[in-house]
Design a protein around this nucleic acid. Structure first.
Lengths: 249, 249
DNA sequence: TATAGTCGTCTATATCAATAGACAAATTAG
DNA sequence: CTAATTTGTCTATTGATATAGACGACTATA
């Protein structure tokens, strides 16, 4: 973006419709803090002129964001911003879900969606230092803050060592607390690989997103302080609601 | 994605055309290492069936990737993968451009695109601990590996302290070397904030991307070992060619 | 109470995106 | 050589996207 000033460019015949590109820009702009809560968006004609499109095209973008609960349109008055700035999700050696979001939200928790036992895939086995096909427990979770989903994760644990961690997770709602039951009071993030892509159907459902949204994806391995791998995870974050803050370790 | 198996889902009337979504999926799949170099893609009819679309729609996706130099189609034989796995770009306290890419590419360098002196914007001033409007030098650079752009960055330095850094950068092609001329032999990454969005027109031109692509965006502050801010930067990485590896600090 | 500003709705038209089916052209396997 | 497989091209049709213009409905304010 380089500053902010030259970002108002739109691509035609790109496979991404103009209304979606404009909706993206408006979301970015809100997330970047360009509008106070309840502030008025520029009028439709002004936006149409700025982006070089028809007013109806801007209306399509706005309508999608109204649908999504980001904006509120009032006939005769204007269109107003509802949602807040993006959450800043900390990532570091000692990343814990709740701790890092303190102060940004009033309410936050993790929901266990499902658990299963399965043979380790190639990458899970590699991450955990197990033989391929070894039994692992898979926990599917969703992180929520202020009643909105902010993350969706799958975590894998060695089945033999962590038998019953699914129950612990359901009861405590915390990975840290669950691991504590297995005698692990501290763990570190060994590696994190980060990428981004368009949300697929599963992401849309899990994270309550509108089609065309972008998700940040992290693949990480957690280890004990002495380097023993305990958890392999893949997490997805809605890019429009979350940014990742890489904290000092 | 959770494993890999359920990722073949496509969203209709989402504002993102089906051919682009499919092109995205193919790119992801290649980047994830599902295909060896020069391996054949599944035939068009098979892909059409897998994604539940018409063969012509798949052809549109493939045609975009052929245009982009990712695939090569041969009549009667098949469609073949040209490009490599994604580059893994390391990010950590001591991130240096060239060092981390060693072994992944045969050739890599930074090009200085432009430099200018300007008053510091709000966020640049905050990042560098200066008064808003203080003079800063802005360097626009592009990182290339194997003749392909892999990053595009804007860096800001306090003008008074680093007068002439633009020339140093042009001569050395290295931030590290340029800073050394100002007596700074070591610096650390103090903070990094990470987000993702659709590429805008500037990104497309700078990074040689096809419209609809996704970029990873980092905003970072570099400091001297004793905590003095020296550089504020915003970098963009094409998500289809680069993943970010958060290294131990 | 006018008037200007803004969102809401309607009609019409053009282009892009996607589907459907058919057949040609090139390659590979038998 | 023949058949099967695969990419390339063509025509036709439908629906989504985008533009254009006009006008109605609601709000705030001079």
């Amino acid at each position: 973006m380089i500053g902010r000033q030259m970002a108002d460019s739109i691509e035609r015949r790109s496979g991404v419709s103009l209304w979606r590109q404009i909706a993206d820009k408006i979301l970015q702009s809100i997330a970047a803090g360009d509008f106070a809560e309840n502030a008025a968006l520029p009028p439709e004609v002004a936006l149409a002129e700025r982006y070089g499109v028809n007013r109806h095209t801007v209306r399509s973008a706005i309508s999608a964001l109204v649908q999504d609960g980001v904006l509120r349109a009032e006939q005769g008055r204007g269109t107003f911003v509802l949602s807040r700035k993006r959450l800043s999700y900390p990532i570091g050696a000692r990343t814990r879900f709740s701790a890092g979001l303190q102060g940004q939200t009033s309410e936050r928790h993790i929901v266990l969606l499902s658990s299963s036992v399965e043979p380790a895939s190639q990458r899970v086995a590699e991450g955990l230092g197990l033989a391929r096909g070894a039994e692992v427990i898979r926990l599917e979770t969703r992180g929520e803050a202020d009643s909105r989903p902010v993350s969706r994760a799958a975590g894998w644990f060695e089945a033999r060592r962590f038998a019953g961690i699914d129950r612990a997770m359901a009861e405590t709602g915390s990975v840290t607390a669950s691991l504590a039951r297995f005698g692990i009071d501290d763990y570190l993030r060994q590696s994190t690989v980060l990428s981004a892509r368009h949300a697929d159907a599963a992401d849309l459902a899990d994270l309550d997103l509108q089609p065309g949204a972008i998700v940040l994806v992290t693949v990480a391995v957690n280890v004990t302080p002495d380097g023993q791998p305990i958890q392999f995870s893949e997490s997805r974050f809605p890019a429009e609601r979350v940014e990742l803050k890489l904290s000092a370790l």
